[in-house]
């Protein structure tokens, strides 16, 4: 082998090792110097032939609806492949949620750098990926995670994914934990032998080993009914901006459950898909629905003395057909 060829070979080998080293160093820098945030997810369980089992992670910030989010209307139509920045705000216990969207990196705060995967057309969501949508696990663990996430004894809890986020908004998944609050939705027991309307039994359970508080009132303003993959949710009225009173706060001891029943025939649970309020039985007779428990923002300052659970908790999807 000639001297020149030997040098070129050495460079080619160095390029291989250097590429791998660069990839590792880049990620390690984010882990070491990045800000740690937790995002709540809805995982699934596929497998990658090259990298083994992984849990596909879906975040609320993957699907952005222009009408719901500050900053997004100016960005739409963002083209596929364009870079966008999801601004995050803390909701407590290290958990962050989406606060806005921008086309330039903010000068401060925590934000994620993402790329548009699908443009928003005709009222649909803008789909954005942040490179944090996969969690690789040891073979077999993916199914365990999925089963746990679906719910133990019908109670679904959120997986909270730990991310290291650097100053440029690049993020790496570093781990996960389970939210301490779980939700269950099931057909309510029939009264006097027959139910005239679809009624749901909603249960919130404290799975932590410490007391936890949730909010609820007569109108169940802490809960919203949404139609999966459609921009439609139950009416804000009569709750409006839910201002929580002290009586609405329910403290749950470890393992305790708060139960209430809702009647979907009631106007409170009518959904607005853009054409005014409609009975969900007519609007989405076969679509999947979710109940979302949301801790009201108005309480956050006054809740220092109680351990109020904050953020959003999505129920498992259900269909009205299952309740008829």
């Amino acid at each position: 082998m000639s001297r020149l060829r030997a040098i070129l070979l050495l460079l080619a080998i160095a390029a291989q090792l250097g590429t791998l080293a660069y990839m590792v160093a880049d990620k390690e820098a984010i882990i070491r110097h990045g800000h740690t945030v937790y995002l709540r997810t809805l995982p699934l369980d596929p497998r990658d032939p090259m990298r083994g089992d992984y849990v596909r992670l879906a975040y609320s910030l993957n699907q952005l609806y222009p009408s719901r989010l500050p900053g997004l209307q100016g960005l739409v139509p963002a083209r596929r492949g364009e870079v966008v920045y999801a601004l995050l705000r803390p909701v407590g216990d290290g958990v962050y949620e989406l606060d806005g969207i921008a086309d330039r990196a903010p000068e401060s705060g925590v934000f994620l750098r993402g790329r548009v995967q699908a443009e928003a057309v005709a009222g649909e969501a803008l789909r954005v990926n942040y490179g944090i949508e996969q969690l690789f696990v040891e073979q077999g663990q993916g199914i365990d995670i999925e089963q746990r996430q679906r719910g133990e004894a019908g109670f679904r809890r959120s997986m909270e994914v730990a991310l290291a986020v650097d100053e440029q908004g690049r993020a790496i998944v570093t781990g996960y934990r389970w939210a301490p609050l779980a939700i269950s939705v099931s057909p309510a027991p029939e009264i006097d032998g027959a139910a005239a309307t679809p009624r749901l039994l909603v249960q919130l359970k404290n799975l932590a080993d410490y007391p936890l508080a949730v909010v609820d009132n007569a109108e169940h303003c802490g809960v919203v009914l949404t139609v999966v993959n459609r921009l439609a949710s139950s009416a804000a009225a009569p709750c409006g901006r839910y201002l929580v009173s002290r009586e609405d706060i329910i403290e749950l001891a470890p393992g305790a459950v708060h139960r209430f029943t809702i009647d979907l025939a009631h106007r409170r649970w009518f959904v607005d898909g853009g054409d005014g309020l409609q009975d969900v039985r007519e609007f989405a007779p076969v679509s999947s629905l979710r109940l979302v428990y949301r801790s009201p923002a108005a309480l956050q300052e006054a809740s220092a003395e109680i351990n109020l659970w904050r953020g959003e908790l999505h129920s498992a999807p259900f269909s009205l057909r299952g309740f008829e």
Partner: peptide, 28 residues
Amino acid sequence: FGAGIWLIAQVYHFSAHYPDGFLLWAMA
């Protein structure tokens, strides 16, 4: 080297545009 690309993606739960892994490997 190719195994290393996928291993790094696995270790850091990297879900960016995965065909780039094939490109890097092919170029090497």
